[in-house]
Simulated assay, not measured.
Amino acid sequence: MRTYSTELLDLLDDGRVRYAGMIRFDLGEGSFGFIRQSSDYVYGGVTYKAMLDGLIEVSSLSRSSGTAASGFTLRLSESPDNGVTPDVLLNIENYDYLDRAVTIYDLHRHPDTGAVLGDPIPMERGYINRIIHNEDPESGFYMTVECESRALDYGRTNGRIRSQEDQHRRSSGDKYFEHASTTGRQKIKWGKA
């Protein structure tokens, strides 16, 4: 259960809290973070780089109950003045991004002093499903990152065979599938003794 300071609860009741949105990408090459404010911020061993408003847009975050899958999208637009060129966006394809974690946080700040009011609160978690590159004559080049929640696994059917690597992604240190690849396949006739 999450607990909040009295100061934060009072400011929330008054509607006076300032928010700074944070996004963390846990790619194969490491973790990268961005924060919507004018200076960098360090949290959980990751330096969240300052980003301008509108550089990364997050779709509405939907909530559902049960095992229904939900998702969200991120849109990253080119901004040559800030070093985000179409080539930079295309180079993201060189990273190990498929099925990697994305977490969206809210960081609460005091409205008068700007002081941080506790740790960032995770608002949504998902996994990158695919990246789509687009070019719009009016807005320029942009990239859409489609993210899905793990609830999608409850209804997904595919021919994939679970492996030790898959299991480690879900629970590091779990050795359930450690010897699965060495046992080979065995054909079992059901109902025969």
Rank of each mutant, 00 (worst) to 15 (best):
I131P: 02
R150T: 15
G126F: 03
R150E: 11
S149T: 15
P137K: 04
N158R: 09
Y142M: 01
M123T: 14
Y154K: 01
Y154D: 02
S149Q: 12
R150S: 15
L152Q: 13
R160M: 07
H108A: 12
T113V: 03
N129Y: 03
R130A: 11
A151I: 04
D119A: 09
N158C: 09
I128D: 05
T144D: 08
I128F: 00
I121F: 02
V145E: 02
Y127E: 06
L152G: 07
R156N: 04
V145Q: 00
H110P: 03
L117G: 11
T157G: 10
L107G: 06
G159C: 08
R160L: 10
V116I: 14
R160Y: 05
R160H: 14
R125F: 10
P111N: 07
G114K: 13
F141L: 01
I132Y: 04
L117Q: 10
V145C: 01
G140Q: 01
R130H: 04
R109M: 08
E148Y: 15
T113R: 08
L107Q: 13
C147R: 14
L117F: 00
P111F: 00
H133G: 06
A151K: 11
D153Q: 07
F141S: 04
G155K: 08
H133K: 09
R156L: 02
E135Y: 11
L117Y: 08
G159A: 12
S139L: 06
H133P: 01
E148K: 10
P120N: 04
P122K: 06
H110F: 05
N158L: 10
Y142A: 12
D119N: 12
I132Q: 12
G126C: 00
